[in-house]
């Protein structure tokens, strides 16, 4: 049984022009111990998927799914209390924007200790618990590479640089030793050395503890080193998903192909000063979504059939949604 199983997740947002499907039939599966990358341009709804999984979306947005389950338990119909327990014990999230995701009026230590669940403390008297919490917090900080813990535990988020805040977010996400870590752009705004350090930490946790990671990022190079599987998202639709090496070697969807082409570090044969491959146009805004396959207007292979949403097709474990995939020649 997959750890996290999402089938046809649709998220609708109300706007002045009526309801807009910000996520359109997104499917995502995550096995235990797997590192899955979730890739897409900015504005493709990556963070919305993260927010729908953790339930941090405004109440008036409509969320529907054929299946959205955690270890077989349905997340949507579940009581908020049960869902909270799963969030507390099994799933941890690193949000995209560390400074906004930390309470500006509470010290970082306070917030880090808050996310340490009670069952990790050994049964002492209640006055010993604060000290135990602090010990665990300091250990966590050392783990994510913060050495001067006493200086930062007292500090407020506004007084610290972004990458320290981000490390605190990571530390507090790891506090409950979760089974699944959802990392929404965890290395954003970090220097290369700290970035490597964090990625190594995550990889190690995955190898040693069997932590599953849903890794949301733009950074294709980091992803290709870490992830086993990848889901590519365009404009709120899943376009392709499968094993990392399969997708890299032989992408089936034109968008995946263009995405790989656009990353210079992926192409070893790139001559100097040659223009980089790009798709024409930009990602459409939510108010002007095309019907059918949303890549349509930008797709080099688009034909008349593309105004209908393509069915998801599969070749073994490789899923793609395209009428004219790259392995079939155009008529």
């Amino acid at each position: 049984m997959p750890l996290l199983d999402i089938k046809n997740l649709t998220l609708e947002i109300e706007s002045t022009q009526g309801w807009i499907k910000a996520l359109d039939k997104v499917s995502l599966q995550l096995e235990g111990g797997e590192v899955r990358a979730l890739v897409g341009e900015s504005g493709s709804g990556k963070s919305l998927i993260v927010k729908s999984i953790v339930g941090a979306i405004p109440e008036h947005w409509r969320i529907t799914a054929d299946r959205m389950s955690w270890k077989g338990q349905d997340l949507i119909s579940m009581s908020s209390d049960a869902r909270r327990r799963i969030m507390r014990e099994d799933i941890a999230v690193i949000f995209q924007n560390p400074v906004n995701s930390l309470d500006p009026s509470a010290s970082l230590g306070e917030q880090l200790m808050e996310s340490i669940p009670d069952h990790l403390l050994d049964k002492g008297w209640f006055w010993q618990r604060a000290a135990q919490r602090k010990q665990i917090a300091v250990k966590l900080l050392h783990k994510v590479g913060i050495k001067e813990h006493s200086k930062y535990l007292q500090a407020y988020p506004s007084a610290l640089p972004d990458d320290i805040c981000q490390k605190f977010m990571i530390a507090s996400a790891l506090a409950a030793s979760p089974k699944l870590l959802i990392a929404d752009d965890p290395t954003r705004g970090m220097e290369v050395t700290t970035k490597v350090q964090i990625l190594k930490l995550l990889t190690r946790l995955n190898k040693i503890r069997g932590l599953s990671i849903l890794f949301v990022s733009h950074d294709l190079l980091a992803i290709s080193n870490m992830a086993n599987t990848m889901t590519v998202l365009y404009c709120g639709q899943t376009v392709e998903s499968g094993k990392m090496h399969q997708l890299r070697r032989r992408p089936l969807h034109p968008y995946t192909h263009a995405l790989m082409e656009s990353a210079p570090s992926f192409r070893k044969d790139l001559p100097p000063k040659s223009p980089l491959a790009t798709l024409d146009g930009t990602i459409p805004t939510l108010q002007h979504l095309p019907i059918g396959c949303r890549l349509g207007p930008r797709c080099p292979r688009a034909q008349r059939e593309c105004v209908k949403v393509p069915e998801e097709r599969r070749i073994h474990n490789h899923f793609y949604s395209c009428h004219f995939p790259l392995h079939r020649s155009l008529k």
Partner: peptide
């Protein structure tokens, strides 16, 4: 605010 949502996501009641 995001930090309130994040606090919910941390599993606080």
């Amino acid at each position: 605010k995001e930090y309130v949502q994040a606090a919910y996501a941390r599993g606080l009641s």
